[in-house]
Design a protein around this nucleic acid. Sequence first.
DNA 1: TTGAAAGCGCTACCAC
DNA 2: GTGGTAGCGCTTTCAA
Lengths: 326, 326
Amino acid sequence: MAQTAGVDMSTASRVLRGDVSQRVREETRARILKVAEELAYRPNSLARGLRTARTDTLGIVVPQLDNPVFAAAIRGAEQAAAELGYSLLISHREPGTTATTIAKLSQTNRVDGLLVASLDDDEVLRSDLAAAHVPFVLMNRILPGAPLSVVLDSRAAARKAVAHLAGLGHRRIAHLAGRDQGFNAAQRLDGYRQGLEAAGIAFDPALVATAGYTAEGGARAMAELLPQRPTAVLAATLVSAAGAMSVLHAAGWRIPQDISVAGLHDAPVASLLYPSLTTVMMPTEEMGRVAASLLVRSLSGEHPDPVPPLPPGDLIARASTGPAPG
Amino acid sequence: MAQTAGVDMSTASRVLRGDVSQRVREETRARILKVAEELAYRPNSLARGLRTARTDTLGIVVPQLDNPVFAAAIRGAEQAAAELGYSLLISHREPGTTATTIAKLSQTNRVDGLLVASLDDDEVLRSDLAAAHVPFVLMNRILPGAPLSVVLDSRAAARKAVAHLAGLGHRRIAHLAGRDQGFNAAQRLDGYRQGLEAAGIAFDPALVATAGYTAEGGARAMAELLPQRPTAVLAATLVSAAGAMSVLHAAGWRIPQDISVAGLHDAPVASLLYPSLTTVMMPTEEMGRVAASLLVRSLSGEHPDPVPPLPPGDLIARASTGPAPG
DNA sequence: TTGAAAGCGCTACCAC
DNA sequence: GTGGTAGCGCTTTCAA
């Protein structure tokens, strides 16, 4: 390529990289660009990476791909990365491959840094990350000692949902919580309590059940709460909301006439449920964007300030919530 | 690392790669392995790739990530790739970045080959792939002139679904078809007709509407077909089935008492719908596995025979289908 | 059985 | 403003 243009390789490299530290005659530059274009020249990224010890690539590690939350985070991260001149290498960690995934990405010099979303316990995650020899940013969770993370304000989101239900006149509002131990679960539970308090409703532990993040968990927890005769329920996720709704249908409770159901996070599946689910939108795509740019900044030697939790979006009132009965 | 073990780099390389063409004294090998272990040595994959002109990495390109079909294909591909000593680089193509995605992956020497799932038109896809300078295998579609592809037998799947509905006594079975032009849509329509024929039911074009692959499309198509008073409907996808169900609920049709609904492909969301959706399982994960191994074989210089369409899995009878009314 | 050395394609430094 | 060149970390051929 360089010899076709009649210039030295190094000159071609300067032009092609857009190096501005040294100037190149306009005519030469044009010739190089033209030849590169004609030959559809693409620099070998392996050689470049070997030389520069950078790949201009970020890795993103998520627990699952077919999950709207992570899919949106990936989209956001990819967009921000592209704008900053980075590619994104996507990886998901099947259960059991936890440690390996991070290791593979980081120890083989394929990525400059890592965006990590994980549902693992603190200790597991911490040791996995310790083995990663690259900078990383956590998404949707905090880990003591890991300074860079971007989280959603799920406390505010839960508060918002409770406010909506209370505004409809509900007083017996149940909560299908996430995992017992878990940063987000605690946040949401806290937001739920704050929401109750703001509405002047006393907190009743009997109206809270642990549902985890599966439909089965949601169903089990809802079944557990039926005897308490709640008139509304706030589920931690769309999936647990769906599980709860199936139990309600089976029990002959009408939604929303007998009971209102709301969930956190918004995704297309919310409108597919029956009745369509009232949700609070969460800026998951934004989370990916922010995480990626945080990572890139820290790769360039900056020490960015911690990012405050991203506030929830609007509450989307759909068919699953309505006025309190009676 | 080599000098720590007191051997030459080349000897270390031979041992670490498991090169059997030359023998190494057992003692030396043990020493190298031990030191490598102690230092947690990981070969630099960029340097290796630069030297060998191989990355032992496959790329997989899908239109969306939060789609159970593609997520399963990715899982399968990743599993097969890992077993064959390859990593998988996942990429999704936002609308508009169609050409670039394939180009970026293949022209920067980052992957040895590509697995491609695409919803694009033949011509678009063809020219994108022409620009890719690596071998590729198509998933879930055929493209004239592209010899390597792995498809699901969606014709058989549609046949199976119709057989189930006919077996329940339905005679007026509608079909929510996919895109007008499209390999899979045509296959499914064909299977639908074959299923009708096998059940001795005459094909009625008035019972077929184009729904595409969205909930809105499914809803629109279902609304269109209501005046035909079908007693059962086969939707091309889960999502269009969900759209159809929302219209049926709104119109006051009871599922399955007034109308049975079935969809193709199975995924957790099928059980979240109300009522839970009867589906035909499709071997999408297997598709990814087969595609990956096909690609690896063709990378090693083999010329594998074309793979016949993968037969559908079982029909999962859930709550959305029941005996024909009357 | 092991070592020496070339070279993959590029960047970055230095010389001119 | 441009060219020469060393060297990134590895594999592979050849020599010892």
